[in-house]
């Protein structure tokens, strides 16, 4: 479903991703961990081309997104993304945030889009906030709206870029709960996070990144309890 081959990314003279190879299967939940500056967010952002790719190939469902002829906008409708800073549209209400893209791209009628938007809001537990503006929501609520907004396009894959890192500790749980629900429903997910508990409980596989490489990958239990690489051991000893 997602195939990454020899992915390289440089910012100026700074090589952030050196040689990334990964294969992510349908319905798999892959959690990416690693120290800051390891390139994990950049890796995630290359998967929907929010970062241009310096070298290598990324395929989403068999479509090579590095090919100039690929319509990246079409691919992005299949790949939802949730950001650390939520990035809700502050001039639009919660429901307007959610229905904007389905109406513009999927050409849904306002009623149909709203109906489905409310359904998604109910799913993330915020139906009563449909007509509120993002500014009036807590961080956890904002992030749940952001998840609903991404789901409104009915993506096949969801990317999460440190979705709980900007939240107050007591709000982390409600967001992780929504993500866990999504994983249980069979969504293909790539999650960059520092939440080791989530990685262990929900992840099918954990990638440990450092210095622009995937240093080690394994099922969570193995990676956390029996890390093979020294860098993985040293990282885990600091965060667990």
């Amino acid at each position: 479903m997602i195939e990454v081959k020899n992915l390289k990314k440089t910012f100026g003279s700074n090589e952030v991703l050196k040689d990334i190879n990964a294969l992510i299967s349908p319905k798999e939940v892959v959690v990416v961990i690693g120290p800051s500056g390891s390139g994990k967010s950049t890796f995630l952002r290359c998967l929907n081309l929010l970062e241009s790719i310096t070298a290598g190939h990324v395929s989403i469902e068999g479509v090579d997104i590095t090919d100039k002829k690929t319509d990246i906008n079409k691919v992005r409708t299949e790949v939802g993304m949730v950001f650390q800073q939520f990035n809700l549209f502050p001039h639009k209400t919660v429901i307007e945030n959610i229905i904007l893209a389905p109406m513009r791209i999927r050409k849904l009628s306002a009623e149909k889009a709203r109906e489905r938007g409310l359904e998604l809001l109910r799913k993330v537990g915020l139906k009563e906030k449909a007509d509120a503006y993002p500014d009036s929501l807590s961080g956890g609520q904002k992030q749940r709206v952001a998840i609903a907004r991404a789901l409104a396009m009915e993506p096949k894959i969801m990317l999460f870029d440190e979705p709980t890192s900007a939240l107050d500790p007591e709000m982390v749980g409600e967001v992780l709960e929504v993500m866990k629900q999504l994983a249980l429903e069979g969504m293909t997910m790539v999650v960059v996070t520092h939440e080791m508990g989530f990685a262990r409980e929900v992840g099918d596989r954990v990638l440990f990144m450092d210095g622009g490489y995937i240093v080690e990958e394994n099922i969570p239990k193995e990676l956390f309890e029996n890390p093979q690489q020294d860098r993985t051991k040293s990282f885990l000893s600091k965060v667990l």
Binding site: N73, F83, F89, L100, I105
Partner: peptide, 18 residues
């Protein structure tokens, strides 16, 4: 305007003009 706004819109599949 914060560049996250453009990124969020583009990540939903909207083109630059939209």
């Amino acid at each position: 305007i914060d560049k996250g706004q453009m990124e969020a819109a583009r990540s939903l599949g909207m083109n630059h003009v939209q």
